[in-house]
Structure formats: structure tokens, C-alpha cells
Design a protein around this nucleic acid. Sequence first.
DNA 1: GGTTTGACCCTAA
DNA 2: ATTAGGGCCAAAC
Length: 106
Amino acid sequence: MNFAKRAIVALKKIPEGRVATYGLLAASISTPRAARAIGLVLSKFKADSQIPWYRVINSKGMISIENLAVPKQEQARRLQKEGVRVEFRNGNYWVDLKKYLWKFKS
DNA sequence: GGTTTGACCCTAA
DNA sequence: ATTAGGGCCAAAC
């Protein structure tokens, strides 16, 4: 299975109402330093995909999206819809990792 | 098959 | 506490 497919399998393991970071998701598929490559995979999804692409944020708890096809506002909305509290601050959306971060099984 | 490009992340100052 | 700089990896050219 190639990298992108493994990433998608891991993505589906993030439960509703929780988030993961790019780095931890990469680590969970045995490539701990491939955080940027995860972003590359996610960039291919459309907003209405079945895969929960929106449950991934950066290590600081910020929604990290510049893509024009899917505005960050849309990601914030999707998260809020399933119970994640999202705060708007300094032009960006923030999530409290202490509360919502999902830790993958070792 | 070398080079460039990011929805990243850690370190040092 | 904040931030610039550099390293990393997989895809797309």
C-alpha cells in the first residue's frame, strides 16, 4: 500500500469530535517526519469527501489551510458541527489540543 | 530520474 | 514567549 492510501486508512481512525495533527498522523503510519507529505495528500480532497479530511490541523492547534478550493472557514464549520469548539483569533481558527487531540494507538 | 513544491515541524537564538 | 531558518517526505512536473 502506498503512502497516500495508508494516510487515508489512518484518517478514518480519528473519531468524530476529535482532531489529529499532521505530524502525529504521519507518525502513526511509521513515517514520523512526513508531516508535509500528509498535507499534500489532504490537499487532493474535495470538501464533500466521505473521508474526514477536516479532522487534521497543525501542531499548534491551528487550522492550516490556504487552499482556495476548500476555505478554512469550511473546515472550522465541519468541526464545530460535530462538537469541537473552534475559536477565531488573529484571522485564524484554533482548536484546544488538550481537549480534542486524538492519540493513535502505538 | 533530478528538481521543485507545499493544508508541516523542530530548534536555536 | 516569539520567530526566522532549515530539514523532511511524497507527488507532481
